[in-house]
């Protein structure tokens, strides 16, 4: 098999052009490896080869972000690489931003795999960890050997299109994508280890950092509810009997939209729940317990509300990913707005 063609991006310092006084160095390219590229080239063995190195001063790059990115990408693509490595930048902030920008742009615009390496506190980490793989390094160039040991084989894996394992296995900084893998010890033993560390005041690493949930601004109140069209939406899995859309009992891949024109009561013979996360007996006997069509029809008749919207929307919240729920909500919301619905009552189980 032919060797992968690799382009290496480094700054003026690692290219030995100069220090801070040369930070305005404009982008240039050279054949083959330069500076730390030697170590990468050696680590690649017969699997890959650094065919070119692109060099840019950190100040020039960050002060001329748009043009510098364009220039650097042009130089990189002229080598027709299969893979791009930027840095590692260790704890150098501007270099980290440059490496992150270059690697992300290479993936996005050239569609070529690209990685970089940084110390975990480098400001480039937060900016780019979700866009590209950033291998965690020590905080100074003294960690170059260790960085190459991890970055080179990982880069080869990425270039070959092999499956990428979890962050702890591969050495990249967690990017928010949860990946399964087999630990050395079973979970209960890891829990005991973690508790003993916590009790002794020693450092420990949680396996799942608590998530941040987003917030939305509350909408203004409905001025006259007796004129309002109200729609019902539920994550309780209420569907017409027989579950015509085959909504999954858990981890739903879709939502259903059902016409309730002329329906005044949800009965055992007409509606049921598709939800697998709660005892379904009560909802199956009377789905109004989850989706209160009966009473809202009464309110409609009495003029307490304007109108119950002709369709209700339903999915199963059980084990369904937040990203899926968000996508369904966006699609449902768009239709409800287009249909002139004023308010939604969302029931959950």
């Amino acid at each position: 098999m032919a060797k992968f063609r690799v382009v290496h991006y480094i700054n003026q310092f690692f290219a030995q052009v100069g220090g801070e006084e040369k930070a305005d160095h404009r982008p240039e390219s050279r054949e083959g490896f330069v500076g730390p590229g030697m170590a990468f080239n050696a680590a690649f063995g017969d699997k890959a080869e650094i065919v070119g190195t692109v060099i840019c001063g950190d100040s020039y790059f960050n002060e001329n972000l748009e043009t510098a990115t364009k220039e650097v990408l042009g130089l990189i693509s002229s080598f027709k690489p299969d893979l791009v490595i930027a840095g590692p930048a260790f704890n150098a902030g501007r270099y980290g931003m440059a490496c992150g920008t270059v690697a992300a742009a290479v993936e996005r615009e050239l569609d070529i795999p690209a990685i970089t390496g940084m110390y975990k506190e480098n400001p480039g980490v937060d900016s780019f960890k979700k866009d590209i793989y950033i291998i965690e390094t020590k905080n100074s160039a003294a960690g170059m050997r260790d960085a190459v040991k991890v970055m080179a084989p990982f880069a080869l894996k990425l270039a070959a299109g092999e499956e990428i394992g979890a962050s702890v296995e591969e050495g990249y900084i967690p990017n928010g994508i949860r990946v399964n893998f087999f630990e050395e010890k079973r979970g209960s033993e890891r829990a005991v280890d973690m508790l003993l560390a916590k009790l002794a005041g020693k450092p420990f690493t949680t396996e799942f950092p608590m998530p941040d949930f987003d917030r939305v601004e509350p909408k203004p109140a409905i001025v006259d509810i007796s004129k309002a069209t109200i729609a019902l939406v539920t994550s309780g899995g209420i569907v017409p009997k027989g579950n015509p859309d085959r909504i999954e009992s858990s981890s739903a891949s879709k939502y259903g939209k059902y016409d309730i024109e002329g329906v005044f009561d949800l009965t055992e013979s007409t509606y049921e729940t598709a939800h697998g996360g709660y005892d379904p007996v009560y909802a199956n006997l009377d789905a109004d317990r989850v989706l209160p069509v009966d009473i809202l029809r009464e309110y409609e008749k009495d003029g307490k509300i304007g109108k119950l919207h002709r369709y209700f929307y339903s999915t199963t919240g059980n084990g369904t990913a937040v990203a899926s729920a968000k996508a369904y909500a966006a699609a449902i919301g768009k239709e409800l707005v287009a249909d002139g619905v004023d308010a939604v009552i969302l029931t959950s189980t």
Binding site: G176, I177, R178, V179, N180, G187, R190, A191, M194, L195, K198, F204, T206, E207, F208, P209, M210, P211, F213, S251, G319, T320, A321, V322, A323, S324
Partner: peptide, 27 residues
């Protein structure tokens, strides 16, 4: 965890800052 088939979603339905030592059985 229930992080979605692509692993990109929040894994838990509830959270609190005091839960700073978590062992997970996978997605």
């Amino acid at each position: 965890e229930y992080a979605g088939r692509d692993g990109a979603s929040q894994s838990l339905a509830d959270a609190d800052i005091s839960a700073n030592a978590v062992v997970t059985g996978g997605n």
